[in-house]
Write a protein that binds this DNA or RNA. Structure first.
Lengths: 401, 401
DNA sequence: GACGATTGTGGGGAGCAGCAACAAACCCGG
DNA sequence: CCGGGTTTGTTGCTGCTCCCCACAATCGTC
């Protein structure tokens, strides 16, 4: 039920159909959610015969969470309300100076406080979701290793909680996984239960939704497809192995093939795209070559997971229009015919993906158990003691997941 | 609860702990299952303080299913009882003569009838599970394509049902997926929620358990890893593509490297293993080469799925003792370090895997809903009308899955 | 042989959800 | 403008599942 609320407004009878519950039960539940301030009801639209069914919609201010993102090149934060509405947002460039987790979180806390101060008259944040470029341990949400950040074994959740001085639960996960979750719920993967999202920047990673659920693997490393050994005689990868997929389809590979090695960054890629638009044969052939290598890795993913749809994000979304033909052609040669039904689409949420996914992660707990949201006699947040008690309980259940 | 019954005997208090249910509730449920003849209770073992807890164990004759297997080289059938007990079994060589589905099923029906006749005094079969070497459509259980059988679009379930004249539901699935399910429940993958089983014979395929559930993909093709494009400059595969993994790690590749191309079959492989045992350097190097290629594909699987454990079955299990060192060494070079935690083990169930998995598939329906098993006033099977009615209902729910 | 520990048993009750009948609100046709 | 048909919300009742609690049974141990 809560799920439907996070997937858009719906009439009561739609909800009854969707959940398979009785009209009476739906009515009771909606009443309870209204009492807790989680949903609004609006007069239903007429036009059909029969009594009009009220439209139930999520109340963005019913639950609000803080979503933050720690990337190699940027920090970002947003306040996101129920229903996925972005209520406030801020982004900051981050120099690649190998700064410590503490310093980075301090800067992050700065923008967060700015966002929160702008909402001082609104109900406070219910939870914090963190998207970080690295591997996160599922059991306690700590960062095991963030290769591009140069961090290792950081207890990010505690760091952020204390740095912000907020006594709310903090949920942490990998950025690609969260962006994939976001695309699955509100982007290119809506309604698709076997979905893969491939993210390409300097490195390459994927997020996987299998059977409607995120697939994280034993320790959260699933989807590290950047290091598939696809090119046995290929170049040395920074991971130490030879011929990783990343060395053939990453940004650097495209720049190299276009004769612009060394000049990193999205601007260089944009230049090559512009050249290809103008008909430059070297640029076009470089992009097509990336497309063919993309197909080789995608064939691997398709044969292993048989997804219904694959979304390409980041740098891959940019080159997709130019690389599509070469990619599809190569896929047709590599994939067993009936498997090739996976459709390739660009990601839709762009740079907001990880933030929206982090928010979704933070919402999860309340969506699982909306009864834990206090009743409408709101100023519950005026009592610090109550809040702390509630937080503790939540933390315990989180650890038990 | 039923799940625990199929995973071995357990005391009542164990069940209460495992399910989180109350002692009273467990008592009620066990009583109901006993009334339906699904479980027995035996005096609990003493030795601990406190009142001894009765041991609950599955009753093999409570539900019995017929499991059949249609392979390229062999046909097999078994009668399997609740708890996974094999009550009767038969296997038959199948010539690779491209015989039709009808002829094959007729031969299969022969051995099935022999098995069933030997149990004429026992309660009849409750369901049929079919393991077939090919791709099966999940919605209706028909065979989409069986490349090695040379079949296409065969409605196997109906064929088998009419051929045997039994009005029971028939469940069909891919052989590798079922063998993996079997290994997960009762073999090398017990208690492992992120598990991959790699089957090598002439072709190569994998079954995947992700997050405790079978991963079949959009249309059941997941795990077709034999055709991963890992060797761009490699040999032509019978699938039409170039450099499929299969061409480097299949039986034929080993025979080729050992200088015995053409002489197919498990006997040829055994010969090479014997030569390696005797210290023959060519045989050893051929096996090690297979081990290295195995590692390349496994690295792909590991980076994509991050399994906790990988079981090698069929031909791979045979060469594992000799190939292990080369495999582990190559994996160490290819895999990002923390990922390499996946342990590689041989499959445990051997040739029975697909049959046991097929039985598990057939049990599934009753395990989901034990209440649908008639009460102990058994001779319910004396009324053909009742049986047919029940079957129809079951079929409807199966289609709705 | 008494005591503590552990577990099965039975009655009462809370919570969730379905069912059926009724009321409300809409469209449409006369 | 009004009644029929249709769809949907509302209300009271019922049934099911499972928890809680008190009690009895059975063990090891002192």
């Amino acid at each position: 039920m809560r799920r439907v609320h996070v997937a858009g407004p719906a009439s009561r009878s739609d909800l009854a159909n969707y959940t398979g519950l009785n009209r009476s039960t739906v009515g009771d539940l909606v009443a309870e959610l209204t009492a807790r301030g989680l949903v609004h009801e609006r007069a239903g639209l007429r036009g059909a015969p029969g009594r009009p069914s009220p439209i139930v919609m999520a109340n963005p201010n019913g639950i609000t969470v803080l979503a933050v993102e720690i990337f190699t090149d940027s920090l970002a934060a947003a306040v996101i309300g129920l229903g996925g509405r972005v209520l406030a947002r801020a982004r900051l460039e981050r120099p690649r100076d190998g700064s410590s987790p503490e310093a980075t979180v301090a800067r992050l806390a700065g923008i967060c406080r700015t966002l929160l101060d702008g909402r001082a008259d609104q109900p406070p944040i219910h939870a914090i979701g963190v998207a970080v470029a690295g591997v996160v341990r599922r059991t306690d949400g700590s960062l095991v290793v963030g290769p591009n950040l140069g961090w290792r074994d950081v207890s990010l959740a505690d760091l952020i909680r204390t740095s912000l001085g907020l006594e709310v639960p903090v949920f942490t996960a990998n950025d690609a996984d969260l962006a994939t979750l976001a695309e699955h719920l509100r982007g290119a993967g809506i309604g698709c239960d076997d979905f893969v999202c491939l993210w390409g920047e300097v490195g390459v990673g994927a997020g996987i939704i299998a059977g409607g659920r995120p697939l994280s693997g034993r320790s959260g490393f699933a989807g590290e497809v950047g290091h598939l050994p696809l090119s046995p005689a290929g170049r040395l990868c920074h991971c130490g192995a030879r011929g990783c997929w990343e060395t053939e389809v990453g940004e650097d590979a495209l720049l190299r093939r276009a004769g612009r090695a060394g000049s990193g960054g999205p601007l260089a890629v944009d230049l090559i795209l512009a050249m290809a638009d103008a008909g430059d044969p070297d640029a076009i052939s470089a992009i097509e070559s990336s497309g063919r290598w993309l197909a080789i890795g995608l064939a691997t993913v398709i044969h292993t997971l048989n997804p219904e749809r694959i979304a390409l994000g980041g740098f891959f979304a940019s080159i997709l229009p130019h690389a599509r033909d070469a990619l599809i052609r190569a896929l047709g040669e590599l994939a067993i015919e009936p498997l090739a039904v996976a459709t390739i689409v660009p990601a839709r949420l762009g740079a907001d993906g990880p933030l929206i996914g982090a928010a979704e992660l933070a919402f999860e707990h309340w969506l699982d158990d909306p009864a834990s949201v206090p009743l409408i006699d709101r100023p519950a947040w005026s009592s610090a003691a109550d809040r702390r008690g509630a937080t503790k309980e939540v933390d315990a259940t989180r650890l038990a997941i």
